[in-house]
Design a protein around this nucleic acid. Structure first.
Lengths: 210, 210
DNA sequence: GTCTATAAAGGGATAGAC
DNA sequence: GTCTATCCCTTTATAGAC
């Protein structure tokens, strides 16, 4: 066993590592299904240190989920804003946007889990606000119409669900899974193109840091 | 307090009541977030009795989720199959199908939660199979093309997410929530009509009991 | 900056009474 | 058919050592 453990690291850096780990674990198991111990194991630190660093499991999730929402918005903004740079079309940008998101497996799934917490006293408001803020980015900064944004969101959620379900893993043996998957992914490619050819010009999309 | 508690009931009947309660609670909180105690409280029985009746929390969820998946399929089948009866069009049937589903608040949300359990040893396979079986009903019995089924599923999931988020509750104060909501719901109505005018004839859709 | 040890609470499951 | 009481494991959070 090559134990890389127990190395002293600057707090900020270690913090990022812990959030990365949290993103993955929360993305897999959701808030209630995740133990701080599992996050600790994934981050290679002790359970107590996780709690000490973030204060509580709730605070850890709030931070992880907020970060995930921000990243999604950042990726969409980037896809829309860099219209001018290079010879890359907005279509390609938007296509890559989703790929970028999916590359970090935890981000999208953590947000999906956040979206199941509407009933929660503390996370419910966070979830609603996060969802609406993503919608606003698509509408106001990417320049989609409400209908386009809605279709985009719907398809994105279906894709995320299928990824969370691990349908790709069984596509080989289950023909229907493969069919649905290719159908949706092709559709998504179309989708991106369709949208990007219709959306209104957006000038320099303002980059709030939120 | 009008306590209706501690009434002896036939086992089968009590069982149904417990499953109804479980459907609501699991739908709100998900599998991991639900305690058998909460289900017991909702059903008006003791926690021990819930566990004794179903054997374990896992078994209770498996049964609740399976029942929910079956009901969804049943509603879709019904919408498609009763084409002949009365002067009601298939459009109206499909429209009502969703309304019927949403009426029982727990059904859809329980399935949504099931769909987040792809990683789970036991529920993962159940989730994948449930999802694919719903897809098959839409494709093989309702007669949608893969693309139509996919669009239908995507929009359905977006609606379910928004309901779970309780967006309708804040639509009054949050203009954007209202906008998205009306946009999606109108779209859904269109959707149903659009689909139903295009799908292939389906004869007598076979009614498996599963 | 990070760990070990442990307290305190929560929750699933079992036993047995009625 | 249904409840009360209770066991025991899991999990969050704290205290304090290094």
């Amino acid at each position: 066993m090559t134990e890389t453990r127990t190395q002293r690291l600057p707090a900020a850096e270690r913090r990022e590592l812990m959030l990365d780990a949290a993103s993955i674990v929360f993305g897999e198991r959701g808030y209630a299904g995740t133990t701080t111990d599992a996050v600790a194991a994934a981050a290679g630190v002790s359970q107590a240190y996780i709690v000490r660093t973030f204060g509580s499991k709730e605070a850890l999730f709030a931070e992880t989920a907020s970060r995930a929402v921000s990243r999604i918005k950042a990726v969409f903004r980037q896809a829309a804003a860099s219209e001018s740079a290079a010879e890359e079309s907005v279509e390609e940008r938007l296509g890559r946007a989703y790929v970028d998101l999916v590359a970090d497996r935890g981000i999208l799934l953590t947000v999906m889990h956040l979206l199941t917490l509407g009933h929660h006293d503390k996370f419910g408001p966070l979830a609603r606000e996060g969802f609406l803020s993503i919608y606003r980015v698509l509408r106001d900064e990417v320049g989609l119409t409400p209908q386009e944004a809605e279709t985009f969101l719907a398809k994105g959620m279906l894709i995320n669900t299928m990824l969370g379900l691990r349908l790709p893993d069984i596509a080989a043996t289950q023909p229907d899974a493969g069919e649905l998957l290719t159908c949706v992914l092709e559709g998504a490619a179309d989708e991106v193109v369709t949208l990007s050819t219709k959306h209104q010009p957006l000038g320099q999309a303002v980059r709030h840091s939120d």
